[in-house]
Design a protein around this nucleic acid. Structure first.
Lengths: 112, 112
DNA sequence: AATATTAATCGTAATATTGCAATGAAACAA
DNA sequence: TTGTTTCATTGCAATATTACGATTAATATT
């Protein structure tokens, strides 16, 4: 019956859930590092990342899957390897969403 | 001996870990909603939030604690209630860090 | 065909997160 | 002092996340 441990997403707006989803996927240093590496070299295969990041191949593969599920990266098969890169459209979407959230006006009148 | 389930933060740079830490705390819609509410009304007590967010008081209190631990909000006791508000300095720090990450140049040359 | 390479998937272990009921602590009100 | 209000803390249950060894699937190479 109980659903503890689950986020009560139904309590929140689509905007709030979207922000949280994108933030969540950025909430692990390995995924941050993967994205930075993809930006840096602009084309990539999983094997490179295993060397660069220093985690086991299944772990990297799992992180890549999460990034792919949110649409931040896309991968195309090239022989036995897969070429991953940033998905510009969705990256821009995320950027817009997060920038808008981060740019909220801080009211400087006395508070606490 | 094993430490599975733990992020291997030692594999990553301070920058990458910091980005991940801030993103992680934004990675829950309740915390996003709390921050948005604080921006909106600029001064707040926990009780308000319980009504606004629709989660139990201990749950809200826990989310507030995480936001406080990262320095994004600060709270001052006022009688029996606590006044929480945005911590402008750290919010700006986070904003700078995340903006820089989000603003990476997308190389539009053919990739995959 | 047989072998090698690459990455995904499966299975499992360990830790983290989310949520709330119950309780506690501190200040206020009567 | 005795209650009341407000928020923090504790304890616990359920789910999620992280990580990796073993295996699988698909393509290349020999």
């Amino acid at each position: 019956m109980s659903k503890m441990g689950i986020s009560k997403t139904e309590n929140f707006s689509k905007n709030q859930n979207d922000i949280a989803l994108f933030a969540k996927v950025l909430g692990h240093p390995a995924r941050v590092a993967i994205l930075q590496h993809l930006f840096k070299i602009n084309t990539c295969v999983c094997g490179d990342l295993v060397d660069v990041i220093g985690l086991a191949q299944p772990t990297i593969s799992q992180h890549l899957k999460e990034l792919k599920n949110l649409g931040l990266i896309k991968g195309t098969v090239e022989g036995t390897s897969v070429c991953y890169c940033i998905n510009p459209e969705n990256w821009t979407k995320m950027k817009t969403l997060l920038l808008h959230f981060l740019d909220q006006e801080i009211n400087q009148t006395e508070c606490c």
